[in-house]
């Protein structure tokens, strides 16, 4: 009897968790090209392989992952305010991609004349790919990206293949990570224990009293001396997590960043 009930409640959990997992899986991704190779860094074969990979990952993560390579910002088919960030943001906004997504742009000569890699995130991806995470990706590709001196002649495929794989891992929503369900159950258990112990505490009404508040003679309390002396102060500081987002010239709200490479 007790066993059946326990099994029932366990099935109930699994049912609920299952529903929650299945529900948001209606992918809403684009038919626009995912690899926009304006610098012509990839062979057609490489481009096809990358496109396949990005399509697969985009569906899995329910957001658009786009690679954009450009030589410079000279001939855009949109208006932007001249910065690297705004170029990437506005490109994403004006080319029909989904509301949640990441655009990784490699520019050979940006407005400051540098080779630069930039991660532009929007929608849910703003919180899924944070500053330290895209920084980690850049750290990881720095040793394998063809040196700047080689210009566009190097083999960029391994670099972008690695970016795609790392994005796939980092963009995985917290709820889809393997430890999300154990953590959820742990949170549930803590809530349950707090609630159940609170209910159980109603069964215990016998305890020694603290103090004798009920027996204070009315009006007998008399404070004859009260001194509050300031001693010293300490100041501690913690670095603020930067999660500022900005609005692109295309009107979308974006986050992200990049560095010269």
């Amino acid at each position: 009897m007790k066993m059946t009930k326990r099994v029932c409640s366990l099935l109930f959990v699994i049912a609920i968790l299952f529903t929650v997992v299945i529900l948001p899986a209606s992918a809403e991704t684009t038919s626009q090209p995912r690899v926009v190779d304006q610098s012509d860094l990839f062979s057609p074969d490489e481009e096809a392989k990358l496109t396949e990979k990005l399509t697969d990952y985009s569906k899995k993560q329910n957001c658009d992952i786009v690679f954009l390579t450009v030589d410079d910002f000279s001939n855009p088919d949109f208006t932007f305010n001249g910065t690297t960030a705004d170029y990437a943001d506005t490109y994403y906004d004006t080319h029909g991609y989904a509301k949640d997504g990441v655009l990784v742009m490699l520019v050979q000569n940006n407005e400051k004349g540098k080779r630069h890699i930039y991660f532009s995130t929007t929608g849910k991806c703003k919180s899924r790919l944070k500053e330290d995470e895209w920084n980690e990706i850049i750290d990881d590709i720095e040793p394998i990206i063809p040196p700047r001196e080689q210009g566009k002649n190097g083999n960029f495929y391994p670099t972008f293949d690695k970016i795609a794989d790392e994005l796939n891992v980092k963009l995985t929503p917290f709820a889809k990570k393997w430890y999300a369900i154990p953590i959820a159950i742990f949170i549930g258990l803590v809530i349950a224990i707090v609630i159940m112990l609170a209910i159980r505490s109603k069964l215990k009404t016998v305890a020694m009293q603290h103090g004798a508040k009920n027996y204070v003679r009315e009006g007998s309390m008399n404070v004859t001396a009260a001194r509050d002396t300031y001693l010293y102060s300490t100041v501690s500081r913690t670095r603020r997590q930067k999660s500022e987002s900005h609005t692109s010239s295309g009107g979308g709200s974006h986050s992200g960043g990049g560095r010269d490479i």
Binding site: K2, K5, R6, S9, L10, F12, V13, I16, L17, V20, A175, A180, I181, I183, A184, I185, I187, G188, L189, V190, I191, A192, I193, I195, M196
Partner: peptide, 15 residues
């Protein structure tokens, strides 16, 4: 029994 039930609901909500 109720600890299990509340855990289930709490876990589902947390998730």
């Amino acid at each position: 029994r109720f600890t299990a039930l509340v855990t289930a609901i709490g876990a589902a909500v947390a998730y």
